[in-house]
Computed example of a mutant assay.
Amino acid sequence: MTAADQEKEQGGVMASAADGGGKSDEGTGTGPGDGSEGPGPGDGSERPGAGAGEGSGGPGGGAGAPDGGDGAAKPPLRTSVWQTDQKAARARHRRSTLAATLDRTKIVAAAVRLLDTEGPAKFSMRRLAAELDVTAMSVYWYVDNKEDLLEYALDAVYGELPLPDVSDPARWREQLRALSLAYRTLLVRHPWTSALVGHFLNIGPNSVSFVLAAQQAVQNSGLPLRGQLGGMAAVFQFVYGFGTIEGQSMVRSAAAGMTEDEAIAGAMRTVGELPELAEYVAVSTEMLDARGGSTIADMRNRDFDFALDLLIAGIERMAERAGDESADPSGE
Rank of each mutant, 00 (worst) to 15 (best):
R127N: 11
A65D: 13
Q216C: 08
R113F: 07
A156F: 04
Q248E: 09
G64K: 09
P76Q: 12
A18H: 07
P39M: 05
A110S: 15
F238L: 05
L150N: 03
W141P: 03
T97S: 12
P76K: 10
R95H: 15
L181W: 00
A217D: 09
S16F: 12
M125H: 03
P76M: 08
D5L: 10
G159M: 09
R252N: 11
D34I: 10
F236T: 07
G62A: 13
E147M: 12
L181E: 04
D324N: 12
A307K: 11
A4P: 03
A290R: 10
K23T: 14
I264H: 00
T185W: 01
I315V: 15
G230H: 09
K106T: 01
R291E: 13
D168I: 02
D168C: 13
E246S: 14
Y142Q: 04
M137D: 11
F236V: 02
N145A: 03
Y183F: 14
S124W: 05
T101L: 14
Q83E: 13
K106V: 06
W172N: 04
Y158N: 01
G35C: 08
L181Y: 00
T2E: 15
L274G: 02
V139C: 02
A255F: 03
E147H: 13
T285H: 06
P224L: 03
F210T: 03
R302E: 07
D133I: 04
T97H: 08
T101F: 10
P59W: 08
D25M: 10
A91T: 05
V235R: 01
S124E: 02
E7S: 15
L115I: 05
S209H: 06
